[in-house]
Design a protein around this nucleic acid. Sequence first.
DNA 1: GCTAGAGGTTGACGCCACGTCAATGTCAAG
DNA 2: CTTGACATTGACGTGGCGTCAACCTCTAGC
Lengths: 247, 247
Amino acid sequence: MERSIQDIARLSGTTSRTLRHYGDIGLLEPSRIGANGYRYYDDDALARLQRILLLRDLGLGLPAIADALAGTREHADALAHHLRWLRQEKDRLDRQIDSVEATIRRMKGGEQLMAEEMFDGFDHAQYKDEVERRWGEEAYASGDRWWRSLTAEEKARFQLDQKAVQDDYAAALASGASVESDEVLAIARRHYDWLVVGWRGRRPTAEQFVGMGDMYIADERFGANYGGLEGATYVRDAMKAFAARNL
Amino acid sequence: MERSIQDIARLSGTTSRTLRHYGDIGLLEPSRIGANGYRYYDDDALARLQRILLLRDLGLGLPAIADALAGTREHADALAHHLRWLRQEKDRLDRQIDSVEATIRRMKGGEQLMAEEMFDGFDHAQYKDEVERRWGEEAYASGDRWWRSLTAEEKARFQLDQKAVQDDYAAALASGASVESDEVLAIARRHYDWLVVGWRGRRPTAEQFVGMGDMYIADERFGANYGGLEGATYVRDAMKAFAARNL
DNA sequence: GCTAGAGGTTGACGCCACGTCAATGTCAAG
DNA sequence: CTTGACATTGACGTGGCGTCAACCTCTAGC
């Protein structure tokens, strides 16, 4: 059976424009082209179109669909690959939703543009230079935007979390606990989780995490938060132990 | 203070190309343009840029950002509007992820293209004409693709759910329960939820839901599933009662 | 004063999957 | 022969810039 372009469009629930587009990019050629230039499609073409549209509904791009149908890549592989991308997008959206909600709360709280300098206990800007040197200016600018998008309450909670981690490290050091003990590893895990928040969901690699520990030792501004050189070394070793086991 | 375009780009974590783009579309003009054509930005421009980038990180489009900064729309309004869009996108992604996972399971189950005609108890194609007449050919084609993307197990579950609803309606009718009783309304709710699955997440309006009930009466093929004319009328009334209260 | 290299400019194409005119040719029915 | 439905190719628009290309300008060192 041979059908006109409109017939195929109606049967498949798409438009003639789309069919011509698929012809243009070589994704779906008409089975025959009349002397007048009209496109005609047979049942095989219709079947192929159905498969194309099914994959399209799943969110695959046209090149990916072409690959899958050409068999250069297994259907399941293409879908698995696509699934990873979908999950990433979903995570991104989740984080964006959280941020937007936080920003709205901030505005409703009426603290619009004020109260931005109220928190200097852990003043984000304090580490500007260090952050820029280590991770570039963009990293600082991006982190700074994040920090300023938080509500006062969220900023306070972030700082309190850090303080708790710090105090627990200090207590563990005083008690003589090994940096490889379960107790200290649990603290390091909270430390890591806290960092992930500050990185807005990105998870530092083992190397990056240990690198931050080294930084605590090298820079006294950081070390000051963790009880001087001895404390900073202890913390660095705990981070290293945690990274070795869990990252 | 006045800075060159590259300085501003580095300080804000973006690129000079982006800044020129924002100039082109009138979102952020340089505070001064030199005789040589060079763009220069002062602190006010930098502050505005920071706000632009913050909103951009939240996923707003540039026109929306322009509106918000111009004050034609309240910041919070713009964000609330944007939030609705984000949630829709997230829902869409969630459904797509489910579909892709289902399709992968189907392929791993090795039932690739077979086993598609194994289920005719509720043969999706059986209602082709009716669906096309009521909601257009595209609706059928789209529904058909959805149906064929399910695993055998999912198809079976879908049919079993429908059978359960059907049986419960029959039992309620036999027991003389009113269509407005809590018991029957609960069945109607399950009926509705079942339908939402078939519509892949779109939720029929009250009008559409009642319309389907009328269809059960008008068309004996549908009525046959619900115990003849008497049963179909009972079901239609239950659907109407549910729609009146809950949709 | 010359030159190299960094940094600036405008202009234009590319991306992705089509929607949407516009201008024009073709077919079936009355 | 007319009318109206349907077909064609061609080109622009979408969003937010990245990425050349071709060219001008500034700064520093010789």
